[in-house]
């Protein structure tokens, strides 16, 4: 359990002709909440998409739960099963007919070849438990398309919860929520993290939240500028390196 869940060494990712992420190295220890901060276009989303195998990487090494990720994004299915990814603005076509129960069930499935009725009772039970934990069991028959922003985020957390996981990767997960729903989301996320022993790697723009609740922080602007505890890393000097001096002056006058 004390092994790091994620080890990244000298990772370089190209987007078309330029290096969006260059020579980034860090580790995510088990059970810790690590935030990635940096300005727009700094390569934060690119970085996590490469770690998940959504984008291919050019050079470097990535180990997820001790298993190497190939540059094209291949990872053993047993490892995949223990990771969950919540994308930035989970926008989907609302005309797709799917109920809350069906959607959360997708988080439980192994997604190889399987009979459509596989799992049966165990699947139903896991879905019910996950929905109860995020206080959304009453929504199970609802179409996902009618959910409010806050409800949708809770359902996404249930999708992560429905099977034991070790690493959660969030790309600005609360984007689009109002202040109150956002703090609700974080309260639930941190509670679940404690209960489940999840390690979290999350891209965030909310530096105050990062200071308050993250264990570690990575400042990124194409390259890794600094890493460490929020108090150590989010100094005016480092923020100035990441976001530019204008931003720091603004933050200090607040």
């Amino acid at each position: 359990m004390n092994d790091p869940v994620l080890v990244v060494k000298g990772l370089t990712v190209y987007r078309e002709t330029y290096a969006a992420v260059q020579d980034v190295s860090f580790t995510v220890p088990a059970g810790m909440d690590t935030a990635i901060v940096g300005p727009n276009g700094a390569g934060k989303s690119t970085l996590i998409q490469a770690i998940l195998g959504i984008l291919p990487y050019r050079s470097g090494e990535v180990f997820v739960l001790g298993q190497p990720l190939s540059p094209k994004g291949k990872l053993p299915p047993a490892v995949r099963q223990q990771i969950a990814y919540l994308p930035q603005n989970f926008l989907f076509d609302r005309r797709i007919p799917i109920t809350v129960r069906e959607f959360v069930g997708l988080g439980w499935d192994r997604l190889g070849l399987q009979l459509p009725w596989a799992g049966g009772q165990a699947r139903r039970h896991a879905v019910q438990q996950a929905l109860t934990q995020v206080d959304a069991w009453h929504l199970y028959q609802q179409p996902v398309s009618v959910l409010s922003g806050g409800e949708l985020k809770r359902i996404l957390l249930a999708y992560c919860l429905v099977r034991p996981r070790r690493l959660l990767v969030l790309d600005e997960a609360p984007a689009g929520l109002d202040v109150r729903s956002e703090s609700e989301f974080y309260r639930l996320l941190h509670q679940l993290k404690k209960d489940q022993g999840w390690a979290i790697l999350q891209v965030s723009h909310d530096l105050d939240m990062v200071r308050r609740s993250c264990d570690r922080v990575l400042c990124i602007n194409r390259t890794l500028l600094c890493q460490g505890t929020p108090d150590h890393s989010l100094t005016p000097e480092n923020l100035s390196l990441a976001y530019g001096p204008e931003f720091v002056r603004y933050r200090h006058s607040c």
């Binding site: 959504i54 990872l75 099963q81 969950a84 990814y85 994308p87 959607f103 069930g105 997604l111 990767v169």
Partner: peptide, 19 residues
Amino acid sequence: TLRSQILLTLHEPMAIARG
């Protein structure tokens, strides 16, 4: 492949992240 097809239809990156 029903479950994979559904997730792929809903959100491609989420499906890739699941392998």
